[in-house]
Design a protein around this nucleic acid. Structure first.
Length: 352
DNA sequence: TATACGTGGTT
DNA sequence: TAACCAAGTAT
């Protein structure tokens, strides 16, 4: 068993030496990776593709070259730089973590899995990934790629997430003692490029000789998953309020929860069931002669669909209202999540 | 253990 | 087109 696993890890590392991709956060072959770059990339890569992350990563690194620079930045700047990347709690925790590193750890990341695990935004996967990739500590990060590779390798039929502990255990038993960072990245690369969710390229896979799913089943059937729940649809009304200076009212969302800390076009609560403009007006930032714009803005979040109706209204410039009065040319200065960019685009299209 | 939490690309 | 899912974490 042990020698068999050794054979597998050697095949994986040999594949990596031949197919290693250059990514902006990766060190040159044999060189020590920078913990700041590894951490930053790992947080961005949570539930996010490499292609999407690249430009954000470059921008963050250019803007905040060291973790202490990031720690010194205002949270709103970090959220602004994160806009469009999603899961905004990651940006809030990223900033919180940077401040902890700067103030309590002398600007240096802890070099072991258990201390890393105690930091904001760092869970079991990320702690293991940083320990292995940045510090060469033996650890077994298990992300969605490695989950899939291992589930196929052993043809694990029990569905996720129940099978997760078993998969982690198998992943740990496969982890070699040397080149643990390269090994972890290799397994993830194999999952991302060969052992793909659909139409895997088993003929190119360095694990195919050992893969139980390849020899006895259909690889695409793994990993098994519990059936997904259907997404409900929530509906709401957004208020496009223009003052006599031609400025639009925006406001900052509460610090916690959905799109926490991000900037929004003021809107009613989003609830399941039919949207009632009449009821929505009670939640408007002020009483105005609201006029409904044609059409709806649609967006899908992780756990619900959203339909927004946009209404427009006007008020005088000296109205004292809680929020940010913003010229159209200044929208880009604010941390607008994608749904809000859609609402802005919709409103501009209908206010010409 | 289950749910909240974004977005964009692929099929 | 609707579903799937991508280097998960917090609560």
């Amino acid at each position: 068993m042990a020698s068999h696993n050794l054979n597998i890890s050697e095949n994986v590392l040999s594949w990596y030496d031949r197919h290693r991709r250059h990514l902006p956060w990766r060190a040159a072959p044999g060189a020590q990776a920078d913990p700041y770059l590894v951490w930053l990339s790992e947080i961005m890569l949570q539930q996010t593709t490499v292609a999407t992350v690249k430009t954000y990563f470059e921008f963050f690194l250019k803007t905040w070259p060291r973790v202490t620079d990031l720690a010194a930045a205002p949270l709103d700047d970090v959220l602004h730089a994160w806009q469009g990347l999603g899961y905004y709690a990651r940006a809030r925790n990223l900033h919180k973590c940077a401040k902890v590193i700067a103030t309590e750890h002398d600007g240096r990341f802890p070099n072991n899995e258990s201390d890393l695990l105690g930091l904001p935004g760092i869970g079991p996967y990320t702690a293991a990934a940083i320990a292995a990739i940045a510090f060469g500590q033996k650890a077994s990060p298990v992300d969605g790629n490695i989950e899939r590779v291992v589930a196929r390798l052993y043809a694990i039929s029990e569905p996720l997430p129940k099978s997760k502990p078993k998969i982690v255990e198998m992943a740990q038993s496969l982890t070699p003692d040397k080149r643990v960072g390269d090994y972890a990245q290799a397994l993830m690369d194999i999952g991302a490029t060969i052992c793909t969710p659909k139409k895997p390229s088993c003929s190119l896979c360095p694990l195919s000789d050992s893969c139980k799913a390849t020899s006895t089943a259909v690889p695409e059937d793994f990993p098994a998953r519990e059936p997904k729940k259907q997404k409900p649809t929530r509906r709401g009304t957004a208020f496009w309020l223009v003052n006599s200076e031609g400025e639009i009212l925006l406001r900052r969302r509460p610090e916690k929860g959905l799109l926490g800390g991000m900037i929004e076009v003021p809107s009613s609560d989003w609830r399941e069931g039919k949207n009632s403009l009449k009821k929505a007006f009670d939640e408007a930032p002020l009483t105005a002669a609201w006029e409904k714009m044609p059409g709806k803005v649609r967006h899908t979040f992780t756990h619900f669909h959203l339909e927004i109706e946009v209404v427009s209204g006007t008020c005088s410039a000296d109205q004292s209202i809680d929020g940010i009065w913003c010229r159209q040319t200044e929208f880009h200065q604010h941390a607008l999540p994608t749904i809000m960019k859609k609402i802005v685009a919709h409103a501009l299209k209908h206010t010409q």
